[in-house]
Simulated assay, not measured.
Amino acid sequence: MAKYEVTKTLDVMGEVCPVPDVETKRAMKKMKPGEILEVLIDYPMSKERIPEAVKKMGNEVLEIEESGSSEWKIYIKIK
């Protein structure tokens, strides 16, 4: 059973700055309040930068889950 009811998954694996950050912001803008965005990343800087962008946009980081060696899933709730 999934932890979150994910509305949209954004896979930016293999991408480096600023692509994951820009794509995450773009995806958040298209979503409605209450929806959950799952972002798949493997670029360590994005693990720091994406949560900052999420907070600046007024949304909430539910969790940053390590899904493999240098791979993460960021769960974002749209406010």
Rank of each mutant, 00 (worst) to 15 (best):
M1C: 02
M1P: 03
Y4R: 14
Y4C: 13
Y4I: 13
Y4G: 11
Y4T: 10
E5S: 04
E5M: 09
E5D: 07
V6G: 12
V6N: 11
V6P: 10
T7C: 05
K8G: 06
K8Y: 15
K8V: 14
T9E: 09
T9C: 05
L10I: 14
L10R: 15
D11C: 05
V12M: 10
V12P: 01
M13D: 00
G14A: 06
G14H: 05
G14F: 10
V16W: 11
V16F: 14
V16L: 13
V16I: 13
V16G: 10
C17K: 04
C17S: 08
P18Y: 07
V19N: 09
V19D: 10
P20T: 10
D21H: 09
V22M: 09
V22F: 07
V22R: 13
E23R: 06
E23I: 01
E23T: 00
T24L: 08
T24E: 06
T24C: 08
T24P: 03
K25D: 05
K25P: 00
R26H: 09
R26F: 11
A27R: 08
A27V: 15
M28V: 15
M28C: 11
K29V: 11
K29E: 10
K30I: 11
M31W: 04
M31C: 08
M31Y: 01
P33N: 00
G34W: 07
E35F: 03
L37I: 12
L37K: 06
E38K: 15
E38H: 09
V39Q: 04
V39W: 02
L40W: 01
L40S: 00
L40R: 11
I41H: 12
I41S: 07
D42S: 04
Y43W: 14
Y43E: 12
Y43F: 15
P44G: 00
P44S: 03
M45Q: 09
S46Y: 07
S46K: 08
K47E: 14
E48A: 00
E48L: 02
R49G: 00
I50P: 02
I50M: 06
P51W: 08
E52K: 11
A53Q: 06
A53P: 01
A53N: 05
A53F: 06
V54A: 03
V54T: 02
V54S: 02
K55E: 14
K55Q: 13
K56G: 01
K56Y: 04
M57I: 01
M57C: 08
G58C: 05
G58M: 06
N59P: 02
N59E: 09
N59C: 11
E60N: 05
E60M: 11
V61C: 06
L62E: 07
L62D: 06
L62I: 14
L62W: 13
E63C: 12
E63Q: 15
E63W: 09
E63D: 15
E63P: 12
I64V: 08
I64A: 03
I64K: 00
E65N: 15
E66S: 06
E66T: 07
E66D: 01
E66Y: 02
E66G: 02
S67K: 11
S69E: 12
S70H: 02
W72Q: 14
K73P: 01
K73A: 12
K73Q: 06
I74R: 09
I74W: 07
Y75C: 12
Y75H: 08
Y75I: 11
I76Q: 04
K77L: 06
I78E: 02
I78R: 07
K79M: 13
K79A: 15
K79I: 14
K79C: 12
K79V: 12
K79E: 15
